[in-house]
Design a binder for these strands. Sequence first.
DNA 1: ATGAAAATGTACTGATCGGTACACATTAAA
DNA 2: TTTAATGTGTACCGATCAGTACATTTTCAT
Lengths: 188, 188
Amino acid sequence: MRPSRKDELIDKALEIFYRDGFHATGMDKLVHETGISKTSMYKYFATKEDLILATLERRHEQFTALLTEGPAARADSPKGQLMASFDTLQEWIASEGFNSCMFIKASSEFQDPSHPIHQMAAMHKRALTEHMANLARKAGAKEPEALARQLMLLKEGAIVTAHIQGKAFAAPDAKDAARTLINLACPE
Amino acid sequence: MRPSRKDELIDKALEIFYRDGFHATGMDKLVHETGISKTSMYKYFATKEDLILATLERRHEQFTALLTEGPAARADSPKGQLMASFDTLQEWIASEGFNSCMFIKASSEFQDPSHPIHQMAAMHKRALTEHMANLARKAGAKEPEALARQLMLLKEGAIVTAHIQGKAFAAPDAKDAARTLINLACPE
DNA sequence: ATGAAAATGTACTGATCGGTACACATTAAA
DNA sequence: TTTAATGTGTACCGATCAGTACATTTTCAT
């Protein structure tokens, strides 16, 4: 099944929202940059908010794939995969289009916790944390949920810091701290 | 010297920008909520951007005071102050009006690294990191700058996570991880 | 009290916001 | 080829955006 026009719209809107922000991106800009008419857009999505939600769903799918495939290809052991997830993070941060995390930015622009966009961001982070907790559990960590949450803090911190301060230190620092926490929590 | 009308504007604008976001806050809303006329506002600040920069400067002053006074009152030793800074973080996150970090949100809405608002955010974070590095150095940490940066990652992560996922775990998790890193880096 | 100067409020600007009305082009069944 | 249905583009809607013109009020030295 070739990508439908709707899929195309989601992909391009995702790119533009990620690059320029949500409030800063008007529907007219989307029309101009995607070449898709406004009528068609509003055929696919009733409101701008619905379109934003669709782009976040896609982003969530992309990251679920990245976070499960990436580290799995790098290491066999669960402990190795925990560490490898920080290499994946480093690669992402170093990549050209990196511009912080779309969900962090979404929750910055839609702050009300009951807002669907904010809740989608919470769901995404919850899923990532659970994935880390599963790895931590398999790695034999004493308190896998706590370790997972702490490693997530390092990742969120690295993303935000790389975005604000630059890419130089954030990812390696996160990896160093993660190594300390993982080695201490997971008996060899 | 009583607070001038300009100071009043900065304080109220700070509160509203922090609560609702920058792009989402129009000048008309500021007029309505502050009771200060638009003409007066544009007498004090030539553009909305200038007003935003003024609120961020004030926020920076507030946090510089908070981050130096708070931990200093809680602990004497530099190592104790490093730990105490995470109690200050926890208190802030738990406080009612907490709504993530104004500078993180600012850099989310003004993403271009060369933008004055983005650079102001970078300056703020750099200053906080330097302050942590000074404490780490006095505490005898092996690599004080690296430790400071890692602790900052935990703080940024806790702020973002508390904002997106809720306040339940973020600050205690950050403190637990920080204790591990600090104890390992600072010889007793 | 008076007059000059500063501060203020109202009403407006053109541009852009999210969203829609409607005419036109395209398709496919008959 | 005709007809109905669908898809698309243009031009527009009222609301709001950042910012301004200007008349009016307030302030204060005289």
